[in-house]
Deep mutational scan, measured.
Amino acid sequence: LDITFHVDGKNIHVHGASEEVVRIIEELIKNNARAEEIKETLERLLR
C-alpha cells in the first residue's frame, strides 16, 4: 500500500488511501501529531 500525504498551508492532500484513512490522517495532523505517530497509526490500521 502506497500512501502519500503532504501539508500545504492548511490543506492536507492524501493520495492512495480510503476516505476513512484520509479522515484519520487529517485528524492526526490537526492534532499536531508527529510524522512518526501518523506512520505508526497507519501501520496499525493497515495490518
Results as ranks from 00 to 15, higher is better:
L1R: 12
L1I: 14
L1F: 14
L1E: 10
L1G: 09
L1A: 09
L1K: 12
L1S: 11
D2N: 12
D2S: 13
D2H: 14
D2E: 11
D2M: 12
D2G: 10
D2R: 06
D2P: 07
D2V: 11
I3Q: 05
I3F: 12
I3T: 06
I3C: 05
I3E: 02
I3Y: 15
T4W: 13
T4Q: 07
T4Y: 12
T4D: 07
T4G: 03
T4A: 07
T4L: 08
F5H: 02
F5D: 01
F5A: 01
F5M: 03
F5Y: 06
F5Q: 01
H6V: 15
H6L: 13
H6E: 10
H6C: 06
H6R: 09
H6G: 06
H6P: 04
H6I: 15
H6Y: 14
H6F: 14
H6K: 11
V7A: 04
V7Y: 09
V7S: 04
V7H: 06
V7Q: 03
V7P: 02
D8F: 04
D8C: 07
D8N: 09
D8E: 11
D8H: 08
D8S: 06
G9M: 02
G9N: 06
G9H: 04
G9K: 02
K10G: 11
K10E: 15
K10Y: 14
K10F: 15
K10H: 13
K10L: 15
K10S: 13
K10I: 15
N11L: 14
N11F: 14
N11Y: 15
N11K: 13
N11D: 15
N11I: 14
N11C: 05
I12H: 04
I12L: 08
I12G: 01
H13Y: 12
H13V: 13
H13T: 12
H13K: 08
H13F: 13
H13L: 07
H13G: 03
H13I: 12
V14C: 03
V14S: 03
V14I: 10
H15P: 05
H15F: 14
H15A: 10
G16T: 06
G16E: 05
G16P: 02
G16D: 10
G16L: 09
A17W: 04
A17P: 05
A17L: 10
A17D: 01
A17F: 05
A17N: 01
S18R: 04
S18E: 04
S18L: 05
S18H: 05
S18G: 07
S18T: 15
S18A: 05
E19G: 07
E19V: 13
E19A: 13
E19Q: 12
E19P: 13
E19M: 14
E19K: 12
E19W: 14
E19L: 13
E20M: 08
E20S: 08
E20Q: 10
E20F: 04
E20A: 09
E20K: 08
E20H: 09
E20V: 09
E20N: 07
E20I: 05
V21A: 07
V21H: 07
V21S: 03
V21Q: 04
V21Y: 03
V21C: 04
V22G: 03
V22H: 05
V22R: 09
V22T: 04
V22N: 03
V22D: 00
R23Y: 08
R23Q: 10
R23V: 05
R23K: 12
R23H: 11
R23I: 06
I24C: 02
I24G: 02
I24W: 04
I24D: 01
I24N: 03
I25L: 07
I25A: 01
I25P: 00
E26F: 14
E26S: 13
E26D: 10
E26L: 15
E27P: 00
E27V: 09
E27I: 11
E27C: 08
E27H: 10
E27G: 10
E27S: 11
E27D: 14
E27A: 14
E27K: 11
L28Q: 03
L28E: 00
L28V: 01
L28G: 01
L28H: 06
I29L: 09
I29M: 06
I29Y: 03
I29D: 00
I29Q: 02
I29F: 04
I29S: 01
K30Y: 09
K30H: 10
K30C: 07
K30A: 11
K30T: 08
K30F: 10
K30S: 10
K30P: 00
N31D: 06
N31W: 07
N31E: 08
N31I: 06
N31P: 00
N31T: 09
N32L: 05
N32D: 11
N32T: 04
N32C: 08
N32M: 07
A33I: 09
A33D: 02
A33T: 10
A33E: 03
A33Q: 04
A33N: 04
R34V: 09
R34S: 15
R34M: 10
R34N: 13
R34G: 14
R34P: 13
R34K: 13
R34L: 09
R34E: 10
A35V: 14
A35Y: 15
A35E: 10
A35C: 10
A35Q: 06
E36W: 07
E36N: 08
E36G: 06
E36T: 08
E36K: 05
E36D: 14
E36Q: 11
E36H: 11
E37N: 06
E37Y: 12
E37A: 09
E37S: 07
I38N: 01
I38Q: 00
I38W: 05
I38H: 01
I38K: 00
K39P: 00
K39T: 14
K39G: 07
K39A: 12
K39W: 15
K39N: 12
K39V: 15
K39L: 15
K39E: 15
E40F: 08
E40Y: 08
E40A: 12
E40D: 12
E40G: 09
E40M: 10
E40I: 08
T41G: 02
T41H: 08
T41P: 00
T41A: 14
T41D: 02
T41R: 05
T41V: 11
T41S: 06
T41N: 05
L42T: 01
L42A: 04
L42I: 14
L42Q: 00
L42V: 07
L42M: 05
E43R: 11
E43N: 10
E43T: 08
E43C: 06
E43F: 09
E43K: 10
E43L: 11
E43V: 10
R44L: 13
R44Q: 13
R44S: 09
L45E: 03
L45W: 07
L45Y: 07
L45N: 01
L45T: 02
L46A: 04
L46E: 04
L46G: 02
L46Y: 05
R47L: 15
R47W: 15
R47T: 15
R47F: 15
R47M: 15
R47G: 15
